[in-house]
């Protein structure tokens, strides 16, 4: 079988790099970018940690010994542990349905998935008050059956799920659409069951995108303030998540404790950022492997 392409000839055909602009312009552009980043991103982040540690490490750690703070951390982790897997399953299912099948109402479903991004989080919270509050649509029924949704864990989880709804689906839909369904069809003709094809073909193809989106989803689930604030009721030690706890401490002029808890959220953001960068680096590495040969 004769192959016509020769990599050497292709390399020769590549044009020489265009000469860069002057060193002065370059220095100016880089300087502006770095100043901007420092002013708006690094400085506030550093301020959080400086404030948190302003009375020493002891005071910083004391903020976490408080039962209210501990319960807020526990609640935040619980909420994320429920909301993220839920959105993971929903996101994969929705992207699968949208990317691989044609059905009426598809465009409507895509718009619907975007809704939480376009609605103010406060409104997202109020929706649940209207539905489950004592004057709400299901309020009477819930009260009669002694089920507590608002001002309790279920309400907070629902609001968080609503707000973080789009993260996984938005990431996966374009990815799956681009990949099409011919690989899955190939697996089916080779005798694989639908589930086996999903595990061995679909999942490996979307694994990095999936991990990436779960990470962002988790960061948002832990950091959500507006929607959760409306449905939580701010009961200390019971329904306060970390962001709400930070606000309470701040309003009580307890700056060290407020910034200490905030530093945890900031640390979470940093970890997310690092893992995200590593993933992006892995992504491009995989893509480059395809081009190199």
């Amino acid at each position: 079988m004769s192959e016509i392409f020769s990599p050497v000839r292709l390399a020769e055909a590549r044009p020489a790099p265009v000469a860069g602009e002057g060193a002065g312009v370059r220095a100016l552009l880089i300087g502006v970018a770095i100043t901007f980043l420092a002013l708006f991103l690094v400085l506030p982040l550093a301020a959080v940690f400086v404030q948190a540690l302003s009375h020493g490490v002891g005071a910083y750690l004391n903020a976490f010994r408080e039962p209210d703070a501990l319960s807020a951390i526990r609640l935040t982790l619980t909420v994320a542990a429920i909301a993220v897997p839920f959105n993971l399953v929903f996101g994969v299912a929705a992207s699968w349905a949208i990317a691989k099948f044609e059905f009426p109402g598809k465009t409507f479903l895509i718009t619907l998935i975007d809704l939480p991004f376009s609605v103010s989080p406060v409104v997202s919270g109020l929706i649940y008050v209207l539905l489950f509050g004592s004057q709400g649509l299901f309020g009477g029924w819930l009260q009669a059956h002694n089920i507590q949704i608002l001002f309790a864990l279920p309400g907070i989880v629902l609001a968080t799920i609503f707000v973080t709804f789009p993260f996984v689906a938005r990431e996966l839909i374009p990815l799956m659409q681009e990949q099409g369904s011919s690989e899955e069809e190939a697996a089916l003709t080779l005798g694989a069951s639908g589930f086996h094809a999903f595990l061995t073909v679909t999942l490996p193809n979307i694994r990095w995108g999936l991990l990436y989106s779960v990470l962002l989803c988790n960061a948002r689930a832990m950091g959500e303030f507006g929607a959760v604030s409306v449905v939580s009721g701010h009961i200390r030690g019971l329904t306060n998540t970390m962001p709400l706890h930070v606000e309470i401490l701040y309003n009580e002029y307890n700056f060290v404790a407020a910034f200490a808890v905030a530093s945890l959220l900031a640390a979470l953001a940093l970890v997310t950022l690092v893992v995200k960068s590593v993933l992006e680096w892995r992504f491009s590495d995989e893509l480059a492997a395809g081009r190199k040969h």
């Binding site: 690989e183 069809e185 190939a186 003709t189 005798g191």
Partner: peptide
């Protein structure tokens, strides 16, 4: 169902499993 038909299908754009 497609799995039980025992067909070998070669797709126009090959559809090889990339990974």
């Amino acid at each position: 169902p497609v799995q039980q038909r025992a067909v070998g299908f070669v797709f126009q754009h090959y559809a090889l499993f990339k990974h």
